[in-house]
Write a protein that binds this DNA or RNA. Structure first.
Length: 447
RNA sequence: GCUGUGGUGGUGUAGGGGUUAGCACGGCAGAUUGUGGUUCUGCCAGCCCGGGUUCAAUUCCCGGCCACGGCCCCA
């Protein structure tokens, strides 16, 4: 038998209902924050991603040539396509833009728990405005989304790549190099990995005193709540010539968030949240869920510079985040299972009970009109289509999860009435064979 | 890139060098030609693929594929 390709998944009706509920929950939060949904193609020019991430990414892409020999690839992420779209389609729109998106991405790599070759990402980008308030708006949205999803125990870590950068340039490291990696970038990498020996070698190579190692080490070791800012300020003030601008911006962001969003279960400030990417410029943040183990990051984002790649440097930097749709769902499922809770995503189950209409020994076409009208009134109605006998038909109604069943046989047609049965307890209500009477009967059974 | 465990009907499993490959759930049908979730009966449907060892392999060995984990990486 032909199987589904490695690293992909099928989603059955039950699973899809949950996924749709989760998506609309996220969408609703985005909408409340003024974000509008967009969609970009599932494949793009290969250049789009090599421009952003370098030629090395190709090995992890589903890249191919089309019949016109064009180099294309299934998209591995959504930020670059959105930036492309902004440059191509949205230049004339009033700024700032608040865009949200959801869709599948593809990466050719070994898949793990919560990591598939085809995966789903929900994300937002706020484009055309910069600064602590922009970052606070974006992070507040992230917090609201996770909070509304019912996720527990998640940990938000916030940092600002500018703090360490300003410290490093304050002690005399350069942000540019004639060839190879700029000294500041190298130093950031060493700090990120905790490699202080490497840092020491770098400093001495640049003729900079190793006295600075200790405060830098202290800075990168900082981790905690809002009070971390004060500690960082103290350390930075001890180094001559270091700008406090980034730290103050971070502080403003943090304060603003507390007004805009509920407090997350855990929030920590950590100045080494650098996300390893050189296009991040300001506040960076990520969310982990301990239940997921090694693949525990469910959300990540920050302020970044990418639009200059499309000739729109005046719109840089932007701020956004990507949310790992599959991972959050996995975490929610794990938490629900641990608590023996049935509902995984708030509002995932249908509130309106399904009505099974069972024609019995009659010409089914005679009830179609009523079925159609009930559906027009918003009822969920499923018609028995296999001419089952009564007992089997009711069994069928149970199995499909119907809340109510209505058997309509020759006698009912003759008398123009039938009864609707509430399947949970067998309670029955008489009704005429017309939609308004059925609606009343359903109303009665629901109250 | 490294590495651990495993693959038996649609699902969950038992077994084991020669078996009619067992059980449960499920689906379909009947008992029951107008009211269900119980019960009984029947039917449906399976040893991942390739190679090797053997008189004989679903069972043992090797490889592949697939699944689930742990590291590395992660736009």
């Amino acid at each position: 038998m032909v199987q589904r390709p490695r690293g992909t998944r099928d989603f059955g009706p039950k699973e899809m209902q949950r996924r749709l509920a989760f998506e609309s929950l996220l969408e609703e939060q985005a909408r409340r924050h003024g974000f509008s949904r967009i969609q970009t193609p599932i494949f793009e020019s290969l250049d789009l991603f090599t421009a952003k991430s370098g030629p090395g990414v190709v090995s992890q892409l589903y890249a191919f040539k089309d019949k016109g020999e064009r180099d294309l690839t299934l998209r591995p992420e959504l930020t670059a396509p959105v930036m492309r779209m902004v440059a191509e389609e949205l230049r004339n729109e009033t700024k700032p833009l608040r865009l949200s998106y959801f869709g599948q991405c593809f990466r050719y790599e070994e898949f793990k728990k919560g990591r598939y070759r085809e995966f789903f990402q929900y994300g937002v980008e706020l484009i055309g405005a910069t600064g602590p308030l922009v970052e606070a708006e974006v992070i507040a949205l992230a917090i609201n989304m996770l909070s509304e999803s019912g996720l527990k125990n998640w940990e938000l870590r916030i940092g600002h790549v500018g703090v360490l950068k300003q410290a490093l340039s304050g002690i005399g490291l350069s942000a540019s190099a004639e060839s190879g990696e700029p000294p500041i970038a190298s130093a950031m990498r060493f700090l990120d990995k905790g490699d202080f020996k490497g840092l020491e070698a770098l400093l001495s190579g640049q003729g900079i005193s190793s006295d600075y190692i200790q405060p830098l080490q202290q800075l990168s070791a900082l981790e905690g709540g809002q009070e971390t800012i004060a500690q960082a300020r103290e350390i930075l003030s001890s180094i001559e010539g270091v700008s406090l601008e980034a730290l103050e911006a971070l502080e403003t962001t943090l304060t603003s968030i507390t007004h805009l969003a509920p407090s997350p279960p855990s929030l920590s400030v950590n100045l080494t949240v650098a996300r390893g990417l050189d296009y991040y410029t300001g506040t960076v943040f990520e969310v982990h869920v301990p239940e997921l183990g090694g693949e525990g990051q469910v959300l990540g984002g920050g302020s970044y510079r990418l639009l200059h790649l499309f000739g729109l440097e005046d719109l840089d930097p932007c701020c956004g985040f990507g949310l790992g749709f599959d991972r959050v769902l996995l975490a929610l499922e794990a938490q629900a299972a641990a608590e023996n809770r049935k509902e995984v995503v708030p509002g995932e189950s249908d509130t309106l009970g399904l009505l099974a209409v069972i024609p019995f020994n009659i010409d089914t076409t005679s009830v179609l009109g009523m079925v159609g009208e009930l559906r027009n009134h918003g009822e969920r109605v499923e018609l028995e289509l296999r001419s089952r006998k009564i007992g089997k038909a009711l069994n069928w109604a149970n199995n499909i999860g119907a809340a109510y069943a209505m058997v309509i046989g020759p006698r009912d047609i003759e008398q123009g009435k039938a009864s609707i049965k509430r399947l949970s307890d067998g309670e029955q209500v008489e009704t005429q064979l017309n939609s308004s009477s059925v609606l009343e009967a359903l109303q009665q059974l629901r109250s």
